[in-house]
Simulated assay, not measured.
Amino acid sequence: MPENYIAEQRFNKEDFTLRSLSKAEYENCKFIGCNFSSSDLSGVKFLDCEFISCNLSLADLTKTTFNEVSFNDCKMLGLRFESCNDFGLAFHFDNCKINHSSFYKLKIKKTNFRNSQLHEVDFSECDLSNSIFDNCDLLSATFDKTILEKADFKTAYNYSIDPDNNRIKKAKFSQSGLAGLLTKYDILISQ
């Protein structure tokens, strides 16, 4: 293996704002309580890795590879996921703050967002087919020409999705969330 290949390592409470994470391919690694805030992660490859209680806010994700990566309890503000390497791009989020981030034009089918805050996130022209937004706060998130076919919004809230401007065939919504599909009509709905 090349020397820039790191497998099955644990990184605990490391501050990568002080010294950069080595440009390498990381496979089956765990990053626990690490600070990547404003770090340069460009060109780094993460395969089957787990980020737990990390801060990745404003990190540079240019050509970063995320292949089957899970983020748990992470702070991820202002990330430009569309800058990532889109080949094999697959990740899952649980209990994360992903506010002010962008997934513009990405194909991220079957992505799970659970118990996460996604305020002002840009999902424009994104393919989110079969994705799940379980107990997610989508306040002021942008859905514009987004593919949401078979996506699950049953427990999501604060979303505003225009059915005329997005593909929502067979998407799942709760009765209480239907108001989020009617926002553009400026009507009042009472319970």
Rank of each mutant, 00 (worst) to 15 (best):
K63C: 07
Y159I: 02
N166Y: 01
E120N: 15
V69Q: 03
Q117A: 12
I132W: 06
T64E: 02
L188S: 09
D127H: 09
C34H: 12
G33F: 05
S140K: 14
H92G: 15
K13D: 13
F46L: 07
F103S: 03
L41K: 08
L128P: 01
T64K: 04
G43W: 07
S176L: 13
S116G: 03
L79Y: 07
D186M: 02
C49T: 06
D137I: 09
K150H: 06
F173H: 02
L148C: 00
N67F: 01
E25V: 10
K170Y: 06
L41M: 08
F123D: 00
T17V: 10
E68I: 07
L182S: 03
F71W: 08
N166H: 01
I187A: 05
H92A: 14
A24P: 03
I161N: 01
G33P: 09
I187P: 01
Y26Q: 07
L139Y: 08
V121I: 05
L106M: 11
K170H: 05
G78L: 03
A24E: 11
Y185I: 03
K105M: 15
T111N: 01
G33W: 04
E27A: 11
S83L: 14
H119Q: 09
L18T: 14
D152T: 02
L182V: 01
N158E: 02
L79T: 05
F11Y: 15
K97V: 15
G43V: 07
G177E: 06
S116C: 08
K23L: 15
S129Y: 04
H100L: 15
I98F: 12
N85M: 02
E125W: 10
R19Y: 14
F123P: 01
N115W: 02
M1S: 14
L56D: 06
K170V: 00
Y104C: 14
H119V: 05
I132A: 00
A151P: 00
I108G: 04
K45F: 07
L106K: 13
E3A: 15
D94H: 13
F133C: 05
E8M: 15
D60V: 08
S190M: 10
S102A: 13
I161W: 04
E27S: 12
K154W: 02
I132G: 02
T146R: 00
N35F: 10
K97Q: 11
E125S: 14
S102N: 13
E50Y: 04
S37L: 13
S57Q: 05
T146M: 09
F46C: 03
I52L: 14
F143G: 04
K109A: 10
K169N: 08
A179H: 04
C84W: 04
M1T: 14
P2M: 11
K30A: 10
N55M: 11
S124M: 08
A90E: 07
A156M: 01
N166K: 03
T62V: 10
S70Q: 12
F66D: 00
L181K: 02
S101F: 08
D60F: 09
Y104L: 14
N28M: 09
F16M: 05
C34W: 04
K145M: 07
R167A: 06
F87M: 09
R80Y: 12
Q117F: 07
S129V: 00
S129L: 02
T146E: 02
Y26I: 13
N166P: 03
S38D: 11
F173C: 03
Y104N: 11
C96W: 07
A141G: 01
